[in-house]
Amino acid sequence: MRKRAGASFYIFLSLFIFVIMFPFLWVFLTSIKPTIEIFGGFNWFTSNPTFQSYENAINTRPLFLYMWNSIAISSLTTIIAISVASLAAYSVTRLPIKFKGTILGIVLAAAMFPQIAIISPIFNLIQGLGLRNSYMGLVIPYITISLPLAIWILATFFKKIPFELEESAKLDGATPFQTFRKIIFPLAAPGVFTTAILVFIAAWNEYLFALTINSDDNWRTVPVGLSMYQSQYTIPWGDITAATVIVTIPIVIIVLLFQRRIVAGLTSGSVKE
């Protein structure tokens, strides 16, 4: 683990990355082909690369608006879900409360029902609250969908943090809440950031609720927006691949920003198992 990687490692890695990336690479290569070259023939590179598809993707539909909606909804979901989930996870793992198993069980049970079966009741609820075609209309269901996963993962992380640290803080006169904020939360940072990415991308990817609840074009999110490029009998692959490439960029940036935090949390010095 600590050894420097050798050349064979890099070769293996590059091959692996290539295989993983191939579908996406193909999407990119398709996006710069002229329409008539998209089907027929398996040429990797076109001799006439064009950005026409990108122009179309941006002009035919409000792609940047979809992205903005998605970013807003996913960020709100992530922030709220992580706050609520870390409180609950902390309480379940560190505080002397009863029914821990029951609580975790109930939380998990919420993730066991097929989502398609609860779309109608949730639609009625959101409609009743007058939240259709708004950010909150999607944020509320998304939070609840991501809570079980978030609580469980955070619980496993909090669990790993030794009690000694907490106890010494307590001796210094810290309240449980302070302990949570000053000691547990920073120590569990990799878990928290990992969970944040998971929640963010889950919200970013969600399709059926977004389709049903936010049916106004001004409030659509990326997955629904992308599916709107096709019409009844035609699928403009050029536009869709171009749009796919564009919407993937913010995710890559977010992951690049977060990835340092994913691995920089626990240091061996402070943790003794």
Partner: peptide
Amino acid sequence: FREMPSDTGQSHDQYVTE
């Protein structure tokens, strides 16, 4: 104008839900 999914089945389901 309210644009619905172009997939006939999906737009059917959306209408029914609403």
